[in-house]
């Protein structure tokens, strides 16, 4: 293990300690989850701590091959960009709403009930990552929510699952991170958080986008509905 890896392990430990994260496999009282060699991890999104925490809980040997997807409009400049790309190995994407208009946008895209459908070009980088054998961490809601609910999913998750049907799609529920660092705040307030890693999903051959996305979203929504720890508004 070289110095850089050692520093990353130290940083991972620091992040999980700071977020008080208790990591457990679904349905257990604290058993460590299995992390497949390659996976598409997706989670509910409510805090800047989300992708940092998900990165930090990954086993050391998998960490270099996990690519969190982060929004370029927030992480894509200056120091934040060096941190996101240099340390957390993030892949920055331009979200549809603030991306410069490209010829691809002129083409009609399929709109679904599950929210806006991202343009194909946004996904190309992610499918390249999967083709290279690396894992992805994505937040299909597209933006941070209040923490106690899950918004409708964007279509990207379905497209990625279809692109690499053999790669397990692993749902991860993040609890309480939004209470540590909610949207709009800069100083975190210490609380204990939970990371629940669920059983992997696979997209069925003839499964519709709508069905798969609601199945995926349901896993997170059901978990969030159990022992909610009382946050309101």
């Amino acid at each position: 293990m070289n110095v850089k890896q050692l520093l990353k392990r130290g940083l991972s430990g620091l992040i999980t300690t700071a977020s008080g994260a208790r990591v457990r496999a679904e349905g257990t009282d604290g058993e460590a989850p299995d992390f497949p060699p390659q996976a598409i991890y997706f989670a509910n999104h409510s805090s800047h701590l989300d992708f940092v925490t998900l990165w930090a809980i990954m086993p050391a040997e998998l960490q270099p091959k996990v690519r969190p997807i982060a929004a370029a409009d927030y992480w894509g400049s200056g120091l934040k960009q060096s941190v996101a790309e240099g340390i957390f190995n993030a892949h920055l994407v331009h979200r549809y709403k603030d991306r410069a208009h490209t010829p691809a946008d002129a083409r009609p895209t399929r709109q679904t009930d599950s929210g806006s459908s991202p343009k194909t070009s946004q996904l190309t980088g992610m499918t390249d990552i999967l083709d290279a054998g690396d894992s992805l961490i994505i937040f299909p809601e597209g933006t941070r929510g209040p923490g106690d609910q899950v918004a409708t999913f964007q279509a990207g998750l379905y497209r990625l699952a279809q692109h690499a049907p053999e790669v397990p799609v692993v749902p991860v529920t993040l609890k309480n991170l939004s209470r540590i660092l909610p949207k709009g705040e800069t100083i975190p307030v210490p609380r204990l958080s939970q990371v629940i890693v669920h059983q992997p999903l696979f997209v069925d051959d003839d499964e519709s986008q709508e069905h798969f996305l609601s199945r995926a979203r349901g896993v997170l929504a059901d978990e969030l509905a159990t022992d909610a720890q009382g946050e309101t508004a």
Partner: peptide, 23 residues
């Protein structure tokens, strides 16, 4: 405090008060 605030049903709007409380 961290344990107490984990189970205490504070509001989102209490965040800045809690920063004083904790730090």
């Amino acid at each position: 405090l961290r344990e107490f605030l984990t189970i205490a049903p504070t509001h989102r709007s209490d965040h800045k008060t809690l920063v004083w409380l904790v730090y």
